[in-house]
Amino acid sequence: MSRETVNSICASFPGAEASDPWGGGHDAWKVGGKMFACIGTVSPGVAIKTDSVETATMLIEMGVGAKAPYFHRSWVLLPFDMDPDELRERLLSSYKLIRLGLPKKVQAALPDMAER
C-alpha cells in the first residue's frame, strides 16, 4: 500500500474530494465538506474516523493502527502496509460514517452511493 493506493481508493467513493487544507502536501479526503481520511506529509499511513473513541482504542490496542496525531481520539492512523482489503473496508467505513452524518440536504446533493 502507498499514498497513491489510498488516494485511488478514496477517489472511487461517490462525491469524495481531495484537498490540501493546511498546505505542504497533505491529502485530506472529504465528502460533503467533512473529512473522512487524511494522509500527512510524513506519516506512514492514513488517518481515518471511527464510530467512537472506544473503537479507535480497540484498534490501537489490537495493533491494527496507532493514535492519529493532531486528531480527535475517535481517529486512528492505519499503516500503509496493512492488508489491502482491510484498508479499503476501513476507509469505506469512515467515508460512510461521515456521509451518513451529513445534513439530509447535503446527502441528497451527493452522487448515489452504490452498494459497495
Rank of each mutant, 00 (worst) to 15 (best):
A37V: 08
G45A: 02
A56S: 03
V42G: 12
V46Y: 01
A47D: 05
K49S: 11
G24F: 10
C38F: 07
A28V: 13
K49R: 07
G45W: 14
V42Q: 08
G45T: 01
C38T: 13
G33I: 09
G24D: 13
M35W: 08
T55A: 00
M58A: 13
D51F: 06
S43N: 15
T57K: 08
A37R: 06
F36Q: 09
M35Q: 11
T57Q: 11
T50M: 02
W29K: 10
A56H: 08
K34A: 12
A56Y: 03
A56E: 01
K30V: 03
I48A: 11
A56W: 00
A56D: 01
V42D: 14
K30N: 04
F36Y: 01
P44Q: 12
S43W: 15
S52T: 03
G32P: 13
G33S: 06
V46L: 03
K49G: 08
G33N: 12
G24Q: 11
K34Y: 07
V31D: 08
A37N: 09
T55C: 00
T50P: 07
V31T: 11
W29P: 00
K30W: 06
K30P: 03
M58Q: 14
C38G: 13
V46S: 11
D27F: 14
I48G: 03
K49Q: 07
W29A: 06
V53G: 00
F36M: 00
D27R: 15
A37I: 07
A47C: 12
K30E: 09
F36D: 04
M58C: 01
G24C: 14
G33Y: 04
G24W: 12
M35I: 15
H26R: 09
S52D: 00
E54P: 03
G40N: 10
S43E: 15
P44H: 11
A28N: 07
V42T: 15
A37H: 13
W29R: 02
T57C: 04
V46N: 05
W29Y: 09
C38N: 15
G40E: 13
A28E: 12
K30Q: 05
G32S: 11
T57F: 05
A37T: 04
K49W: 03
T55K: 01
G45V: 05
T57Y: 01
V31W: 01
T50F: 02
G45R: 04
I39Y: 02
A47L: 13
V42W: 05
